[in-house]
Design a binder for these strands. Structure first.
Lengths: 203, 203
DNA sequence: CCTACCGATCGGTAGG
DNA sequence: CCTACCGATCGGTAGG
């Protein structure tokens, strides 16, 4: 709104780089000095875009949210409501993590663990993003139940908790152990929960 | 081994405080200045215990491992092998997270997300701890299968992945959303996986 | 957008 | 274990 329209694209590019750095080193590890060096501009020039370190951090969170919308949510929502949409949300998210759209894996996983115990605007922004994602999975599951594609005694919030747990743990294990098998484990767990298959004899 | 035996307990106390601070602010956010002020001793006096920031960080990881052994693993291993031991490991871990033995929730969750994309001795130490925990859950599940207390087609590594996912996600959601329900969701998911109950009509 | 700077804090050292 | 420092880097400002 109160903007520098001419610099809007430059600002977006700066924030995309900031999100890459923060996915590895965290939003505190994201310093004005390192970011300005990476971008090849002066520290005070960079600072002028944001006015404070905290505003840079908040703007980076908003930019990373856009990336997830583009990479995961918008494509998955092209699938009509039902269990296939839930599957697509999970599959897109796992691809987003696995292909390292951010070099440190999921941006939100990295920074939520950094701020989840530190009250302030960053924690609130991250909590809001997490609620929106959980809400989207929950309501997509509820639609699939209404359509008769999932068992009618399914608790959508409970199942959403479980699916998100599988996705986040795949991200975490694959990063820490350098073990891409974690994604196959998550896919198998998700397939079992959504496909009605009871046993583990899946593939 | 090559020790200052007289200072051993002081060192342990220092590291217990360091683990508390790091669970909230991370192992980078753990600075010699803040830790020395918290403890009421001089920065160089504190420094002398460790010789480098990285050694302080590594020693803090080892001290936090002891806490988990005392709070979670040793008590659970008093239960004989079988599904009740698996249940006890999960229940103890959830209590350890829920009661905020560390003020920032599970110490390892906080610092694994910090270092999982940053090669070096800290990432290796955390990866080793994570492998040991995953291995303990996996072998405890395998024992329960051998005892006929879990279905014989159970894949222990797969089930361990799923149980750990539920535990970590409960820790994460409870911290970020201030929502203790997350622990009930994890308990329900774990109960369903270990108790053979299919439906969600659990409590 | 830049150069040049500010006080505070960082990890670490000298010397006792 | 302490006081007193070191150079580097932090977020941020002055002035252009």
């Amino acid at each position: 709104m109160a903007g520098r329209p001419r610099n809007e694209q430059a600002r977006r590019d700066i924030l995309r780089t900031a999100a890459d750095l923060a996915s590895v080193d965290g939003l505190d590890g994201l310093t004005l000095g390192r970011l300005s060096t990476t971008l090849g501009l002066s520290k005070s020039g960079l600072f002028g875009y944001f006015g404070s370190k905290e505003e840079l951090q908040l703007a980076t969170v908003r930019r990373a949210t856009e990336v997830i919308l583009d990479e995961v949510i918008t494509p998955a929502l092209r699938i009509p409501p039902g269990v296939e949409r839930v599957r697509a949300l999970c599959a897109r998210w796992l691809d987003y993590s696995r292909t390292r759209v951010f070099p440190g894996g999921c941006f939100f996983f990295a920074v939520m663990a950094e701020f989840d115990a530190r009250p302030g605007p960053l924690r609130e922004a991250l909590a809001e993003g997490s609620r929106a994602w959980t809400g989207l999975i929950t309501s997509s599951i509820a639609e699939a139940v209404e359509l008769g594609e999932l068992a009618e005694d399914t608790d959508p919030a409970q199942l959403a908790f479980e699916l998100i747990a599988f996705m986040e743990n795949a991200n975490s294990v694959s990063l820490l152990q350098d073990d891409a098998d974690a994604y196959r484990r998550a896919e198998r767990a998700i397939g079992n929960r959504l496909g009605g298959r009871r046993s583990v004899i899946t593939d």
